[in-house]
C-alpha cells in the first residue's frame, strides 16, 4: 500500500451502510456485497438488496480483486484541485470477476497503454488515517 503526501482530492463520506467497505480498504481488502436471498452481487454497497428489495439479506464477501477494463478515458482536463495536477490520468470502469462494474483509475502504468479488456488487479492508496482508496493496475507479466 502506498501513502500519498498531502491528499487534496475529495474524500468519501462514510456512513453505516458503507463503513465495512471503507474499513476493509484500510486493511487492504476489497469487500463487495451479495444478497443471500437472490444470490446477486451489487455495487456500490447499499443497506438493501437493489435486485430483490430484501432489507435483511445483504452479506459482505471478499472480492478477488481481479477484473478487466470495461472502458476508460485518458483525462486531459479537470479543473478540480487534486485532479488538475494529475492529468493525464486514466478514468475507467472495471468489471470485477464477480460481475459488477465500478469506477476507478488505472494506475502504475503509462496511460496510453491502457486498453479495453486489459486484466487489472486492485491496489490501495492511503489518503489519511480513516480513508484508503482502491485503484486498479495492470496485472504484472
Amino acid at each position: 500500500m502506498t501513502t500519498r503526501q498531502e491528499w487534496n482530492k475529495p474524500l468519501p463520506t462514510v456512513v453505516g451502510e458503507t463503513r465495512p467497505y471503507w474499513e476493509s480498504c484500510r486493511r487492504g481488502e476489497l469487500l463487495i456485497q451479495r444478497c443471500e436471498k437472490c444470490g446477486e452481487y451489487q455495487f456500490y454497497p447499499r443497506g438493501i438488496c437493489a435486485n430483490c428489495w430484501s432489507d435483511d439479506s445483504i452479506r459482505w464477501v471478499q472480492a478477488s480483486g481481479k477484473g478487466t477494463v470495461w472502458t476508460y478515458t485518458v483525462t486531459y482536463q479537470n479543473r478540480t484541485p487534486g485532479f488538475a495536477e494529475d492529468v493525464p490520468y486514466v478514468l475507467a470502469v472495471v468489471e470485477l470477476e464477480e460481475g459488477v462494474k465500478m469506477f476507478t483509475n488505472i494506475v502504475d502504468c503509462n496511460p496510453r497503454e491502457v486498453t479495453i479488456g486489459m486484466p487489472v488487479e486492485v491496489t490501495f492508496v492511503r489518503a489519511n488515517d480513516q480513508i484508503t482508496v482502491p485503484y486498479f493496475r495492470p496485472v504484472g507479466e
Partner: peptide, 9 residues
Amino acid sequence: SFEELYGLT
C-alpha cells in the same frame, strides 16, 4: 463517494 474520488468529469 464511489465515483468522484476518481476524478470523474
